[in-house]
Design a protein around this nucleic acid. Sequence first.
DNA 1: TACGAAACTGACTGACTGGTCAGTTAATAA
DNA 2: TTATTAACTGACCAGTCAGTCAGTTTCGTA
Lengths: 197, 197
Amino acid sequence: MTKKKQIMRVATKLLSLKGYKDTSMAELAKITGVAQGTIFYHYNSKEELFLAILEDFKTEILKEFEGYLTQRRFNSGLEMMNEVVGFYLFLAGKMEDRFLLLHRHDAYELARVNPVGRDYLESIYNCFVDIFEKAIVTGQKDGSVAQLPARRTALIIFTMVDGLVRFNTYNLYDAGALYDDLITSISRILMNFNPSG
Amino acid sequence: MTKKKQIMRVATKLLSLKGYKDTSMAELAKITGVAQGTIFYHYNSKEELFLAILEDFKTEILKEFEGYLTQRRFNSGLEMMNEVVGFYLFLAGKMEDRFLLLHRHDAYELARVNPVGRDYLESIYNCFVDIFEKAIVTGQKDGSVAQLPARRTALIIFTMVDGLVRFNTYNLYDAGALYDDLITSISRILMNFNPSG
DNA sequence: TACGAAACTGACTGACTGGTCAGTTAATAA
DNA sequence: TTATTAACTGACCAGTCAGTCAGTTTCGTA
């Protein structure tokens, strides 16, 4: 692996664990095993390195979702939603460090001053909300999901799932124990009791 | 107002707006209009000041809820839940800066190393979850809420409401526009379709 | 008035920060 | 072999940080 990639990998870990301000370039250099100058040779500044990490995350997320959607087929919109929530939680485990990064304020503070960073963040979030919305729309066509405002309901469900992941990383509650309740709650929100109307 | 109180008030604002690391004691002293030494006369360290803010928040939250619960009466558990969600959002507006503080990682990093801080945080969160749970249990007695696991469902609803507030502060979506959808979703989760069972 | 204590001050310190740069090493091409 | 560029190094810099402390002011009280 190139040193540039090594730097980014270690930086991702450090930034997600300790946050932007608490991660020093000296420490990053030491752990990666390069001189501090090397970091600034590849990335002009700390902010640029952070930006590169976000871009990388965006790219990988998009790839993951593309692969998932071309493989999976669903019997109904409601089933699709359950599967997709599972996939989200799977990704949150697989890319644990980057999800932690998303749950920090650092990324939003970057987005506030850096349009490129804001673009990356919105791409990532829209990716998630889009797929939830797609499940709802699909379900409304096949009759498994009630006639709710699709986008707004997708956002609500996203806050539920995302909130659970965050609670887990905060270690305040064991989110794993809430998985079944989450699925039940989502089903109750979406369920169509009047399939003919 | 005593200088000690002034320091805490400005510190709360700064810490919630800029985060722990990005708030310097020099800046805090300048804005408050005291010498930097004065801060350390009243609070032995930056961490102790942060802790004092959390304790103050906890105390105020508990007082607010006590006042609310002794005043309000509800016709049913389901109605109580709707009202309580509204009260939560009202508090989030009234104590905007402190809620922002809760949505940063700073507090959790403090809680990880400081048991007293962890106590404050848990008190605050339990306060919220308890009242949601209370609404569910009440509703299950009066038949307006289905027989779901009360505590776990309360946690799920808490993640929804809290997630919405966070989204609002992140400025990614207009959470105000989602209020009606939130209430609808919560009602659908809780609603009892078989009041006799 | 006198006096001790509490409140307050601001210049100072040592550790640490992101970033620089002159110079070295490795890789590639002619 | 030689020349050119890219990759890499680490000592160094100016600025910032939380925290200190010797000294001053304010206040309650006797």
